[in-house]
Structures are given as structure tokens and as C-alpha cells.
Design a protein around this nucleic acid. Sequence first.
DNA 1: CGCCGTGTTGAGCATCGTCAAGCAGTGTGG
DNA 2: CCACACTGCTTGACGATGCTCAACACGGCG
Lengths: 249, 249
Amino acid sequence: MTIKDSFYNDMSVKPCGMVDHLDGAQWARLAPLLTQHKQFTPGAVISRRGDFLDYSLLLLDGLIARSVPRGQRARSTFVALQFPGEFVDLHAFPLKRLDHDVISLTDTRVAMIAHEPLRELLNGDVEMARNLWLMTLVDASIHRHWVMRNSAMRALARVANFLSEFDARMSAAYGMERQSLPFDLRQTDIADATGLTSVHVSRTLRELREHGCCAVTGGKLLIHDRAGLHKVGQFEPAYLYMPQSEAAL
Amino acid sequence: MTIKDSFYNDMSVKPCGMVDHLDGAQWARLAPLLTQHKQFTPGAVISRRGDFLDYSLLLLDGLIARSVPRGQRARSTFVALQFPGEFVDLHAFPLKRLDHDVISLTDTRVAMIAHEPLRELLNGDVEMARNLWLMTLVDASIHRHWVMRNSAMRALARVANFLSEFDARMSAAYGMERQSLPFDLRQTDIADATGLTSVHVSRTLRELREHGCCAVTGGKLLIHDRAGLHKVGQFEPAYLYMPQSEAAL
DNA sequence: CGCCGTGTTGAGCATCGTCAAGCAGTGTGG
DNA sequence: CCACACTGCTTGACGATGCTCAACACGGCG
């Protein structure tokens, strides 16, 4: 098996990651609705707070942030990050209206699914509906973890925990753990996600580097000591509800 | 109409608040499954992180926190608060396993709904399933708001925003706005919910009192200047997805 | 080449946490 | 009845964590 640096070109192959919560047969029924693809460049606004959506997006490649603008021309706050193999705004299917912006952080590829045919599919497929429900609830569990992280942890632990989550979710998307991951976030993105300033993120990353835990350089995240990073960040992946971590908690 | 200080005794009457997302006919079908009631005293642990649940709870009266323990014998962090008329752990229906503790903050009354009959009901009622899905997604939207609040706001705005949310959700539960609400949270509870220390919450409440916004005394929250409180807390209730705020955003 | 976006470093300061003491209210037992 | 303990709130003093402002380095790209 070769390492993928680009994700999910062939839609007949079920992606790894979040959509693992669907079985093969369910994916085969869903995939035909995911025909239309789109691309975005870094910084592109995919949809805005208040928009009424009649479609949702499955992220195929790249990183997308759910973000709330703060102040006038100040920075924004990220309330969620989506990885390849995850739905970006499936919650818009029942909710219809967005409560946040959706922003492309890197070069991204997405597949669109219109709500109308999705509704018809789910009307006849209770199991799949429950699995899609479940996937939005895993998102919610991750939200809760972000609340905890950004409320209760100091900067060093907070950033270590954030990077641990990045590693875990990226590994899920790849289907394997790696010692070096592509990392296309800027330090200001880490700042927006952790509620710190980019200046302090810079200092914190240096500290993690000097600890020998990990290093962020040249678009790569190098994990030198995964166990140490998890320890510093008090990282316990149960909240991600991934198949391999089901035993824990 | 008399003001209710105790909520939801008669299950044939549809509660206000969150369950407003169900219509009368749907409530009539759901209510028969909510027969078994339970009570809890302040501080009672209703269920624990890691528990496998085969039932969910509808909160009838009182306040319940979803909480993650932090450290050994340190304080905990609240990742969510539930008000009367809301499901406490409906997400356990698809997820099965809890990622946090559930704690009674006051004297509470809940109605239980077993997952097995709920599953059967929803198998034959796609609309209701979608509405329950929606209710868990409103929870998720509130989670996102908590991430923003506890990441991006200073103490004064943070507490003001928290109290504004308390007011709005309590008003939804009552079905009306009030100038004086029962407020059974201790300052340490506000601290756990906002990521501050109880000492600093005390100072912040004094500041809000001196501002003339609101006062917390003797188990009551007195709102002297709701508009001012909202302004200090930059409160915009759209994220609560309540019927009356549908226009906004 | 100059410019822009990004990251790094330093100095000073504000916000908030920690520690400690004291006070009011409440419940308990003598 | 009071003594006592206990919980929750308040206030002060001090210190640490992280923010602000500013300067500069570095690389990519016109």
C-alpha cells in the first residue's frame, strides 16, 4: 500500500475517516448522490453565517474551518475543523440555516450532496439516517472537547492536545499512523482554533520542539514522541468515537 | 396565565422550550414513552463518562450539567447545561456511550425514555426522527457558541453572555420573558461553565451589578437592563434556533 | 529588486489565577 | 439557647500566564 498524499479521487472506493461509520453497502447507496465536485483555494469563503443551504459537502481533500467572525476587522474564532472523509455541514440538512462561516484553509476538494435527494434516500433507509445522525453527534462530541480544551487547559497543554487531535484525525483519514504529516495550517490558524494569539502559539510550539515532542516546519508536522505529546496534552482520543478507540473510556 | 415556578407536571401538555421543535401530534406520540419519572438532588451524578446507556432523559424541572472531570480532586469543566424541556443525553441514542458525566445541579425531575421503544417509534416516523436529530443539532450549535465564548471573550463579556443565554433558554422554558428568574447556580457553577475561577466570577458579577445590568442574589437573577446585558455580552440569540429568533442572523 | 505574508523575539503590561483571611447564612449537636 | 462546623461569597495582595505593540528575519513572487 502506498501512502496517499491526495485523498479520495475514486468515489467508488469508500473513504476512511469519519465515513467509516457507514458500511460498504450504505456507502454504495450514498456515493451516487455525491457526483458534483468543487474546488476551493486557501481563504475562500464556502458559505456564510445565516445562509440557507439546500446541499451539504463531503470533504475529499484539504482542510476546512467552521469559523465565527469576531469584532470588525479582527481575527476570527474557529469552532470546528473538518478533515478529509468528514461531512462539513451535514447539520445544515435538518437545521437548514448556518450559524457560522465555512472557510477553506488549504486547497480543498469537496463533493456536494443535495438535500432533496438525500431526504428521499433517508426516508427509505432508517439505518443510514441513524448513521448520518451519529456522524453529526461525533462532531458535537468534538465540539464539547474543544470547549473543555479552550476553557480548562493552559497554552502548552492546549496546543499539544490540538496537535494530538490533528494527528489522530489525519491518521484516520489516511487509514494509518504516520511520523510525518502534511500540515498546511499557519500559526494564526492554530491560534484561531485554540483561542490564543499567534505570537503565543509561536512560543508554545518552540517549547514543544524543545521538549522533543514534535516540530512544525515547512508544511509538515513531525511527531518525534507521540506518547510524550499525548501526555503533555492529556490526550485521550475516546471522544473521537473512532472504531479503534471504542475499547477505551 | 399564571407564572410557573415548577415545570411540566402534566405530560399530556407539551412543554415549551426545546421540544417546541416537535408539533402537537408528534408530542402525543412521544409522550406515552416518557412514563417513568425520576428525581435527583443537587450534586447527584446521573450518569458517568464511559457508561453505555439504553435510555435517555427529558429534563422536566431543574438544571443539569454535562461535565468533564479535570485533574484529580480539582474542579470540573461544564461542557453543556440543560434546561427544562430539553433532552439531556439524547445523543446517547445513536452514540450509546457517553463522553462526559451528567450531573444534577439542583433538585431535578426527569422523564426517562428507553431506546428500544424509541427506535421502534422512529423506524415508523421519519419526520419525528428528523426533528429529534434537529434537537441534538441545536445542542451542537450551542456547543459551538460555548467554544467561541470561552475562547474569544474576556471575563466580563463572557459572564454577561452566559447570563444572557441563561435568560433566553429559561424564558423559552417558561414560555415568556421575566424580569426576575430563579437562579439556582452557585458562583462555582458559573466558573465551571465559563472557564474562570469562582473568585473572578465574583468580581465580574460585582462589575455587572455596578454597571446596572443585572444582579444575582438569593437564588434569583434580576435583569435590570436586558439590552445593556446583551450589549456587554455581545449576545445574539440566533444560535439557539428558537422559533422567535428565526428571522435574525 | 521590493513587497507581502508568515514566523520569531523582546519588552511591558493587563487580565486573571492563587492563596489567604474573613463574613454571612444554615444546619447540627450539646 | 449557644457553640460549632460547613458551605458559599467577598475582598485583598501577589504573581503568572498570555496579550499588545513593535521590530526584524526569511522566503516566495511579482
